[in-house]
Design a protein around this nucleic acid. Sequence first.
RNA 1: GGGCGGUUAGCUCAGUUGGUAGAGCACCGGCUUUACACGCCGGCUGUCACAGGUUCGAGUCCUGUACCGCCCACCA
Length: 894
Amino acid sequence: MTPFRLPRRWSPDPERPAIARRAGVPLTVMTSKQERAGGAFALPEKPALEGLERKWLARWEADGIYRFDRTAPRERVFAIDTPPPTVSGSLHVGHVFSYTHTDILARYHRMRGRVVFYPMGWDDNGLPTERRVQNYFGVRCDPSLPYDPSFVPPEKPGKTPIAVSRPNFIELCERLTAEDEKAFEELWRHLGLSVDWSLTYSTVGKTAQRVSQRSFLRLLKKGIAYQLEAPTLWDVDFRTAVAQAELEDRETPGAYHKLRFKRPDGGAVEIDTTRPELLPACVALVAHPDDPRYQPLFGTEVVTPLFGVRVPVKPHPLANPEKGTGAAMICTFGDVTDVTWWRELGLPVRAVIGPDGRLRPVTWGSPGWESTDAEAAQKAYDALAGLTAVKARAAIVELLRASGDLIGDVRPITHPVKYYEKGDRPLEIITSRQWFIKTIEFRDALLARGRELQWYPPFMQSRYQNWVEGLTGDWCISRQRFFGVPFPVWYPIDGNGQVQYDRPILPSEERLPIDPSTDVPDGYTADQRGMPNGFAGDPDVMDTWATSSLTPQIAGGWEDDPDLFARVFPMDLRPQAHEIIRTWLFYTVARAHFEHDSLPWRSTTISGWVLDPDRKKMSKSKGNVVTPMALLEQHGSDGVRYWAAGGRPGTDTAFDPGQMKVGRRLAMKLLNASRFALSNAEPRGPVTVPVDRAMITSLAALVDDATALFEENQYATVLERTERWFWTYCDDYLELVKSRRYGAQGPELAGSANTALLASLSVLLRLFAPFLPFVTEEVWSWWQPGSVHRAAWPTSAELLETIGGPDESAALALERASLVLGEVRKTKSEAKRKLSTPVTRLVVRDTPEHLEALRTAEADLVSSGFVQSLHLEPAEAFEVEVTLAADEPPVPAS
RNA sequence: GGGCGGUUAGCUCAGUUGGUAGAGCACCGGCUUUACACGCCGGCUGUCACAGGUUCGAGUCCUGUACCGCCCACCA
């Protein structure tokens, strides 16, 4: 007489829209070695998870089950543009998390009959590698040194870095990344990534160099790549240009300094600045055109303090009357606004910050450095020259204070300052010659590409949109570094020894890849390098993104393997993290747009982050991060994958070992339930019993759900629903049919259960296979030929075939029987009796329709509930009365 | 300052098209039941951030507010 709620778990949802069955995938034929031999399946006595990884990794590798089929036509291929992990970075759970998501999708599509192109790249290009090599070996690159073939790095890095040649440095980079790649591959394999390991590439390998250089040359021909001597964002520690996409703001302490500029009429103009050390680089003052305080001064000149430079006062709408005094000094260059003003107001350049971030020597009184008192200017400047910006700031404050041009105290503030994302000191803006790729004039087309792309989750598109709309300059792709893809360009040197940058010498594409620092352009000889009337190589290397924006082309064999490329490009999926939408994703879209006039891929999945329990992004800087391999060993790869699979696209997920334990438990349950289903699997017969037919019908609905969800990359929901279904299957269905399948109701009804058990197990294993590749493969091997990962994704059709079509009328049988069984269990549990306690009398009151359904499951219910007498009584509402057998007399202690 | 997410049980999170609030973990109690003690059965747990609005009915739709997070921004 317990009131309760109706669990809806077994009843198919009549509201659910019918999902068209997908045809064309062959049914898995349910045969096995044992069945063919007429015997029982060979099942392990005590199934275990330990060692499954090693066992199946070896087999998968030997059988090549993840090998890409190069004969597959494009429409059958599912191509993935795998993110090449930065091998010089450390492995962390974030990698495990997001790469698992992609693998789950890869495995699903493979089972759907698609030929999955799943390569793995290694990002061993760029500054992180350089920096790591410097620290690891204790060296620094000096390009002026000759190659030393006998160089051996010290055992332990010394305090003073050893200077090595560029070729030596690159050798060390390659040596270190090779070790890193091994560690990554081992982790990926252990995690069970179904990558085709014959399709690996590196972002600094020959192929990547050739592709990068070829694409660059073509952009150059199209006029999309160009070089320019211009103010460029510059990191003074790395001594290289960087791109807008690699900037980040950091709150940094600073201070306002109020400076006084003299007017010709003897008056003064005051401005506020946070960078007084740039006073010698001041080229103008600026104020808002509508600002009445400064309108009278527009068109006049003022004189800078200390340096006596006459600079104009100009109006510009960017000047903010609210800030400081409303007037600002324009320096070349203090920040990007200075660049805008400088360009739009047509001002001269007076650069004082050198590439090393120190104030460079200047001769006052020379052209461009005119002063009303050159001697005083020189004296003041000499006190600053050679200092870093920060030290020069302190020094100039003293000078200004002494001269009386600093008004009042400096006022400390904290303000956002632009940094290179990998750098430690604020960016400077340095005028230099750099290579650019045009993006601004293609803004609309690139925005359209963003709309054309399918985003998972869709809201991530706005990140792209915002970024492209906010672009302020073209993409600077040259870096003044050593380890990277060189620009395939030389320049002629004229008779006076001047390098002719405007007349680049280009190699033919057949020669690529080339290194202009060692290779010689056609028509020249090696001894003409650096000589008058000879040639010079471009000294720069490409931005790492200039190469990694071509991963689809590199992995797909663009131009090198046209047949392969036609089969995989444009690709189907780009999985990646959201913080690199503005770099990797945007640049890749741009390159494909320029080169192929298409998207590089049809869709993208944006993964979330792994968060610490304190809700911060997990990072290696926190000492408490567990190494991924230790996690895999502790919880099993399937367990860790289970946790990762719970992370929906675009959603951050907390690091949670508890979920890994749950995953491990699920894997264990799968082993044991399978053992049950496969033991005593004879005799086999048609599925006639309503309880069995209901289970099959319900599973068929789950399969349709799962398939539809997977098509939307909703893997987390697939796992959740499959798991829920499976657990109910174990708790209710298996319990109900247990005695029947052992023959309690005769061979015919046992045959119905056995057929249903095997059909459901086959489907369940395949539903779980993308998530738990090891345990599903293990169970599959007990009774099925081949790999579950090459088996066809289950269909509702194949299930319904076993019962001759959906049987909605049977659904009620399982639902009512499960309900009553639950009531019986509850009564026993609350009476603190064991579940095998006999029920002397079970009364079920229910509607006639329900009772009729229950009657078809009566025998199963009676046996699983240990019911001695069952009474079904028609009633308005559902009610159950359970009478338990009296307690057995206590057993006297022996 | 702009944009995008989020706020549901102690914790981590689901919640399709509006229709009686869910799962796992944790906690409590019980149980060796011939697949599983790496197990099983059961129980407890809610101002769905807040305020309005639409509606017969709102966790869900609309408006506003607060807080958290992320991305971006011209930072003198």
